[in-house]
Write a protein that binds this DNA or RNA. Sequence first.
DNA 1: TGTTAGCACTCGCAATGACAGAGTGCTAAT
DNA 2: ATTAGCACTCTGTCATTGCGAGTGCTAACA
Lengths: 344, 344
Amino acid sequence: MLTNRQLQILQVIVDDFVSSAQPVGSRQISKKEGIHFSPATIRNEMADLEELGYIEKTHTSSGRVPSEKGYRFYVDHLLKPKTMSVQDIGLIQSLFQNQIVEMEQIIRQSANILSDLTTYTTILLGPNVGNHRVKRFQLVPLSEQSAVAIIVTDNGHVENRMITLPKGFDALDIEKTVKILNDRLVGVPILELQSRLELETLEVLRQHIHTADSLFQSLKKMANVEKESEVYFAGKMNMLNQPEFHDFNKIRMFMDLMDKKSQIISLFHPGDNDIHIRIGSENNNLAMEDCSVITATYSIGEAQTGSIAIIGPTRMDYQRVISLLDLMRSGLSHTLTKKLMDGL
Amino acid sequence: MLTNRQLQILQVIVDDFVSSAQPVGSRQISKKEGIHFSPATIRNEMADLEELGYIEKTHTSSGRVPSEKGYRFYVDHLLKPKTMSVQDIGLIQSLFQNQIVEMEQIIRQSANILSDLTTYTTILLGPNVGNHRVKRFQLVPLSEQSAVAIIVTDNGHVENRMITLPKGFDALDIEKTVKILNDRLVGVPILELQSRLELETLEVLRQHIHTADSLFQSLKKMANVEKESEVYFAGKMNMLNQPEFHDFNKIRMFMDLMDKKSQIISLFHPGDNDIHIRIGSENNNLAMEDCSVITATYSIGEAQTGSIAIIGPTRMDYQRVISLLDLMRSGLSHTLTKKLMDGL
DNA sequence: TGTTAGCACTCGCAATGACAGAGTGCTAAT
DNA sequence: ATTAGCACTCTGTCATTGCGAGTGCTAACA
């Protein structure tokens, strides 16, 4: 167990390093408010803290830097709620007071505001599409052989896809098909669309349309709606400002990562509803070794949830990010839920 | 006028510098195939070329580097068609042989292939939306007060927008509205949509729907479809590989530029149908001082055109990029036009 | 007269060493 | 238990040096 003094010192080291990005020496610590012991004493304590793995030296005679374990401890035990600046709060509030109609707009804006306020990178996962339900199908023929299939979901999202039509498919066929699809599939969650399509419509289609099987192939493709959530980015380039990223290899790796949706999604904490913090190697990703990721979820109505992640260097202002994230998550949840209830 | 020998030397300097990124010295030049004079002679010629402004020294005793004027001359007079590698051709061909249905997919892929093959950055402007014509309107109500408005264009593009409905707007009203819109506005180019909407439908709507004016406000918003072309990027990060961009400020400026659609669009050559090359400051953009941009246009059918730009360092393999760009532009034109003719 | 060999000179760059500054660990005094 | 003091270590900077690559110029050559 750490002594009170060790806690104090660890706190100062993390706080100081977070804001200066420079290793922290004993003399520097001794000058801080609330520290009433000499540099020598502090050096002794630091030696202990180092032995325990909470801090590290960058070289034999350097000041100390928090280790991953140190950050972890700091985050778990030493985080003290700071009051947020009125401006920050105001900026976030104004987004929600602003009467924006489209959900997507609001989400985009949220990401931008977060990355501006934090100077880190924000990734925002839109509500998971899988739970949305089909509201309406539409089939707009473009030519003899092709048409646009449109699926509108209950939250106003529109999916559209080009499909090929069977030979000799006429206006009447289209009408019939649309009717069948709407009769049978409205209300079905996107996630189940493909299976339900087969189950519910194949037979009926065969009864009414003589090219049913060919058509069905097209419809099956259409029903293969992207189930992964939309990903919104903001402030990708903010990483360039972080001194730990003044290294082309790191930048490269980071940017490559940002281009891979599957890897991005793996950064999010599955399931659960809290704010989560992953520090450095806890992200299980080489490109993220010097990064921490703080994630939160927001919810829209009962069923839909989305996530927000803020990615910064491990030397990150954890408290500030958490506050901002919390404010944003609740604002988003509230505003978007209201939109949903009001029928968008 | 440059002597034959000077041309030869300039050519070697550009070629060499393009591939090595290192200033080229007289000794190095003298060793090249086809060069039959001594380093001393070459030094004399280089002194002349420098005086004429085609090449520069990076410091008093360095080798020479092409100046902007040098590149310009090279591009205008010295470019020799190289035969393209079979692999490159194959890769591009395979894209078009591949049976991809969606235009957008093809365009995205094209950009990717180009940036992969060139190792530069590709920007692809989709066909200008303004000329597309309305094929069908649809209005899907989501709640009492809101609906999704959908516009399908003749090339299969789908625009959708949330709109608010007037109080007490019922299913019958929706049906009427959709009918009126489709009767009056199908075939109208997107560009004219807003004006034609007012001209053609306002009166009729007033006759049939008692909340016509309120509805019309919503429709007007809907009709405000983005007229600028879609922009596709590929290989943004390729710039990191270029030694001239191993400088955080340049990277930053470049990336900032890439985020500004209006600036991006200003990089393209307006109007004209040829391949265009802009070197360094010819781009009139500080962030582009060390970049060259090569642009080409492709066309879909008679009316629609799009553009491709490849952005690399001024020290760029001009010939290769031009060949690739030419191949891609004609492939794209051909394939997409065919798609359009086949009714997509 | 055009070409070339030779040479002195310049510049960048990498290696070297000296040195100041910041920090540590340990010991001995308080 | 705390702290002052001191020897030691490591980094970063600066000036020096030497090397290599390249140039410009001159004089010799074909």
